[in-house]
Amino acid sequence: MNSIQVLNALAAGSLLTLLASGLALIYGLRNVMNFAHGAIYMFAAFMTARLVEHTNYWVAFVVVPLTCAVLGLVLEFGLLRPFADRSVITIALVTFGLALVLSSATHSLFGTQPRVVSAPAPLDGTLDILGDPYPVYRLFLITVGLGSVALLVAWLKFTRSGLHVRAVSAQPDTARMAGVNTKRLGVIIVCLSTGFAGLAGVLAAPYLSIDTGMGDAILIISLVIVVLGGIGSIGGAIVSALIVGGLQTLGSVTAPAVTTIAPYVLLIIVLLWRPQGLGRGRVDH
């Protein structure tokens, strides 16, 4: 194993971490298993490709996550709030429907052809890492991806509102009783979650090929990660995302055949051992 492989693992892991932590947040705060998360990510990547054609990557870097955060507002006020009394599974099925609608909208807005986006100007070169050339863009991806997640963790750990988020995701009723304004916090979290999906999409655009299947594939892995980490545990999701990202990349070098199955086997083994998942999640879901 060399440093290049470690960096590749981190690059894959940082996208997964962004997506999985977003999913864990929205589940923890709003009790929603959001099947539209992958579609938002795909939408973001296609939108990035379109914006790059007309303007440049940095415009997309700002505009796309914000657009996705606005999609979060639509989700909150159009679905989650009016139908707050419906069961978790009902809302999950509705988001599954919304995923299809959003995918379809993405295709009619941006077409179905696969796209390739090249890395933006200052980041399009390579850098020597212990003698091996390495694309600068991937270092940028790792920095921004893991940096955002680190900021998220710092927010959760060291601020008042972050404390409230942790409380609500563990015991929503108790947190509300203690005076946490769960409504206001809910809006922030839904927007943050979809915004993170948007950020993952914009970061992925110059790194992966943009195609119509990209959302589904990563959604399922992210869902696996959230369950693996313990539903309702944001920290658990982050750690599992890094484990799975690492497993996949390192495995693809050493044992490619087994790697694609590894996350699922891992999930089944973990659930056999700890039905509540790795992290300290919610007890009453």
Binding site: A92, L223, V227, L271
Partner: peptide, 19 residues
């Protein structure tokens, strides 16, 4: 294994198994 978990993780593990 699967019937030991609750409804939402159940949906996820069956999905994971299929994939």
């Amino acid at each position: 294994v699967f019937v030991r978990v609750k409804a939402l993780p159940f949906a996820m593990v069956t999905l994971a198994f299929s994939v």
